[in-house]
């Protein structure tokens, strides 16, 4: 008989507030001996103005600093050369959601850095919903995943994992059970082993949503950060912690994210595409520290 997980299992194990992160995945999964996933959090007070517009120069500085730290390199150029060859064909997967898109300044900087290590202009493309019709993405040898983090009505939160949903011809197949199987996207042939860098934008994240399609300025704050790493699951996991901390600060109680963003834990435990457990994540914080929440 299939084991049924109820609310009480979570109360027993963790307390009501964390029903959330693990529903639908093995509760008592054994921890394997794994290398820690490195995640860099960098923040800068001037990365966005009061209207949320990105300062490209500041973004360039932040990204360059992160690359040096993430890949233990002397220069950011050397770091990029560790992950990208001049012969690579690179798709930059962005996000076009009209209220909180991947800003053009971010896309432009990523493209410029790829060009600086010798990738040909025609071998770079930036796309969101058209990736399965985009010739560069169809023959890509490398991918870069860049998008903002936000609360999501169906998956709980939308981050690096959710951003690849357009790589499947039937995105709705992944919607059941609050999109628990989003991690499987990273095992699709068009994606598997190709992602060299994930940039989870925490510039102005949305920490709560009221309904299926409503962007609410009330629930967006200027966090002014970036999470960067090679493990999309670890980035989403850290991003989720920040979102949860902001919710506690705002609502003055542990108000669980609805629905449960269980796809993050499932990406580790079921699909094996990264690390969700914070104990197995090495978080390095750089830059502005006020209101860091983690």
């Amino acid at each position: 008989m299939t084991h049924i997980i109820t609310r009480r299992d979570f109360l027993r194990k963790t307390g009501a507030a964390t029903i959330i992160a693990a529903a639908g995945v093995p509760l008592f999964a054994q921890e394997g001996a794994q290398k820690k996933s490195k995640v860099i959090l960098i923040r800068h007070q001037n990365i966005v103005d009061k209207d949320g517009r990105v300062d490209q120069k500041v973004f360039e500085q932040m990204l360059d600093e992160v690359m040096v730290k993430l890949f233990d390199s002397k220069t950011h150029e050397a770091a990029w050369k560790q992950i990208i060859k001049p012969t690579d064909i690179v798709g930059i997967k962005s996000n076009k959601w009209k209220y909180l898109p991947t800003p053009a300044e971010v896309e432009n900087t990523l493209k410029a850095r790829l060009r600086s290590v010798g990738v040909q202009e025609e071998n770079i493309s930036i796309d969101d919903q058209g990736v399965l019709r985009n010739p560069v993405f169809l023959k890509a040898t490398a991918l870069i995943n860049a998008r903002p983090m936000r609360a999501h009505h169906w998956a709980g939160v939308s981050g690096c994992l959710k951003n690849y949903i357009m790589f499947t011809p039937e995105p709705s197949d992944l919607h059941p059970d609050s999109c628990v199987d989003l991690g499987s996207l990273y095992n699709l042939p068009i994606v598997k082993g190709k992602t060299r860098l994930n940039v989870l934008l925490m510039l102005t994240p949305q920490f709560n949503c009221l309904g299926p399609h409503h962007f609410d300025k009330e629930f967006v704050w200027q966090y002014k950060g970036l999470l960067v790493g090679t493990d999309p699951v670890a980035l989403d996991s850290v991003g989720l912690k920040i979102i949860e901390a902001k919710r506690r600060q705002y609502f003055k109680e542990d108000l669980p994210i609805r629905p449960s963003p269980k796809h993050i834990a499932a990406a580790e435990q079921k699909h094996g595409v990264g690390v969700a457990d914070m104990k197995k994540i090495e978080l390095i914080k750089l830059g502005w520290n006020e209101g860091v929440l983690i």
Partner: peptide, 15 residues
């Protein structure tokens, strides 16, 4: 039950 669970998680199956 999917909608029930969004508002108030009861169980991961339709009990």
């Amino acid at each position: 039950y999917e909608i029930l669970n969004i508002h108030y998680f009861v169980a991961d199956k339709n009990i």
